[in-house]
Amino acid sequence: MAEAVIQTEKLTRKFGSFTAVDEISFSVASGEIFGFLGANGAGKTTAMKMLTGLLAPTSGEATVAGFDVYRETESIRRNIGYMSQRFSLYDDLTPRENIRFFGGIYGLGSSELREKGERLLDSLDLQESADTRLAALPLGWKQKLAFSVALLHEPKLIFLDEPTGGVDPVTRRRFWDMIYDATDRGVTVFVTTHYMDEAEYCDRVSIMVDGRIAALDTPAMLKKQFAAETMNEVFIQLARPAKRGEG
């Protein structure tokens, strides 16, 4: 396997007496699409926040893109892309302005930014709407744009937090084509999702239950291991005994 882009060792986060993430250990290889699954409240978001440097771990070790999650959060942030479940561009700005802003805060030069921006608008077929406020565009387009914007500064690793929430299967499929394109260029993808068909698209999948990683393997191996037809069955088998409910 190629070098590890994410490496965790007994990574733990407690909130008071509640252990949100309980000694998780895993590694993500370069160029991999790593699915990070779990029911609501299983600890996915907390784990993701620790990996993106937004939340300090309570104990355990982890490196992201080669940087330590305790001490080198700034370097981590510079080297990752991030797209959140909630649609996360500015609705009152146009696509072109959004591109310019996010490129700008990642320190891209203006000529580089203009060139990249135009190429991006071309490839997304957004030239016609480039100066319309984002609020008027369909959600699927916005998500594609958000994904592309998150890759603007050419990070090695991108975190996608439920990137396809709320769109139809066809749009979702197209979105995944974009993810595959990115991995072809060597980008590592760390993705959370609630759609089990999407879990099938991942190279490897981990399933969190009650703050722990209950299973981690390729979708094919997981199905075999749990004697299941689909990832959905695997997930339900694992998540049913969960003690934590919604939340």
């Binding site: 993106t52 440097g53 937004l54 700034e74 942030r77 510079r78 990752i80 991030y82 959140s84 479940q85 909630r86 649609f87 996360s88 561009l89 500015y90 609705d91 996010f102 805060i105 990642y106 320190g107 975190f159």
Partner: peptide, 14 residues
């Protein structure tokens, strides 16, 4: 509220 703050915080802005 819109979630963009998260994005700003994850960016390299201090």
């Amino acid at each position: 509220e819109s979630g963009t703050m998260e994005l700003l915080l994850v960016s390299s802005l201090r």
